[in-house]
Design a protein around this nucleic acid. Structure first.
Lengths: 200, 200
DNA sequence: CGTTATGCGGACTGTCGGTCCGCTTGAGGG
DNA sequence: CCCTCAAGCGGACCGACAGTCCGCATAACG
């Protein structure tokens, strides 16, 4: 990704211009009227260029989303704990949801647009699969008795742009993230972030 | 709903024809190419008729969905326990998810199409709001310490047509429902469907 | 059977995602 | 410095679709 091995200078420039234009349109109007015509016009390139670079509408939005989440992905794979490997599953889960929640809260409109565009092949999206694998592994480690794969889908299902907008009151931008974290904790069991239960 | 106070006979006939045609198109091809042109053609009516009756694409799909879920809704409001009023929250929750899960499993394609069409005003849909209110009340009753409203959204978020298709293996059509029920039980706490905890 | 307003149909419009192909231009070798 | 040529560009073009509109048909009723 990023810059291809051999990418002509103008191609790279256009790539950025298109991405920036998309971002601006998303920020200005509601995400719904981000048509590819408009993106191309605002970026000052032809429509064909957009398609050659990103394949289709979904690809364009996905590229933007991946740009936003690359750091989180790398942090999970090889960063320091508690996000990266090494911390207990509960803490990694908390850290992961904190990071993903922040991205989602800051890009709710982009998220909606992407969901819309991806129709329903979003479950094949590499990013989705990565988050899902990670969550599944964490759940499986902590609660081998539950269906970790399903719980992972359930947690991700809540990352819906419109829902995030609805549950985020003005003046408390991290409320969504906290709700998700508490829900995930509830799924794992009562002992939220306290010591192990007294039953042992 | 149903039949308006004064509805001309041909109007009622067309209404049914359109609904049936939509159903057939949904069943045959994948839900994506259920264009209103096609629905009108198959129903043997003009396009204008479809729009006059249902307002728009989303309205058409919603009408079909409401038809499918009317019985469940009535059962919740005034049917016998455990679905209707009177049973403990845990049991009502289980019964509700059983009913809603059955509808969702049997109408996954319709569900996808509806999500697609509703873009993101699905949270204003009367049906959605009804399910949400019900769930929220049940959660609040059992776990007043958690954010019942958010949990209700989280449970409903999982009712996604494409997800249902993905997690439903051939030969186990109720697997999705069971997964949802177990997840909801986990949200409420360990004592799944057993007797009250020994702490009392 | 006459009257009327309710409902009908399908041509029409505007927009969008996506394709295609002739032209331009960056980049490297002579 | 210029020549070559493929990588890249742009925007005309296409088909499909949601939604509108208005002249016409007909159900309902006395």
């Amino acid at each position: 990704m990023g810059t291809q091995a051999t990418e002509r200078a103008d191609a790279a420039r256009n790539r950025r211009a298109v991405l920036d234009a998309t971002e601006r349109l998303l920020a200005e109007g509601g995400g719904e009227h981000v048509s590819l015509d408009r993106v191309a016009a605002l970026a000052g390139v032809g429509k064909g260029t957009v398609f050659r670079r990103f394949g289709n509408r979904a690809g364009l939005l996905r590229a933007l989303l991946e740009e936003r989440s690359r750091a989180l992905r790398e942090g999970i794979e090889s960063g320091p704990p508690p996000l990266g490997p090494g911390a207990p599953a509960r803490e990694r889960l908390h850290a992961f949801l904190d990071g993903l929640g922040a991205i989602a809260e800051g890009n709710a409109v982009l998220l909606s647009a992407h969901e819309q565009a991806c129709a329903e092949d979003k479950y094949d999206d590499p990013s989705y699969r990565f988050w899902h694998r990670h969550l599944r592994a964490l759940f499986a480690e902590e609660r081998p008795d539950l269906d970790a794969g399903f719980l992972a889908h359930a947690v991700l299902a809540v990352f819906d742009g419109e829902l995030i907008r609805r549950v985020t009151p003005p003046g408390d931008p991290r409320r969504f993230t906290r709700s998700v974290q508490r829900m995930a904790a509830a799924m794992l069991g009562q002992d939220d972030h306290r010591d192990p239960p007294p039953g042992t």
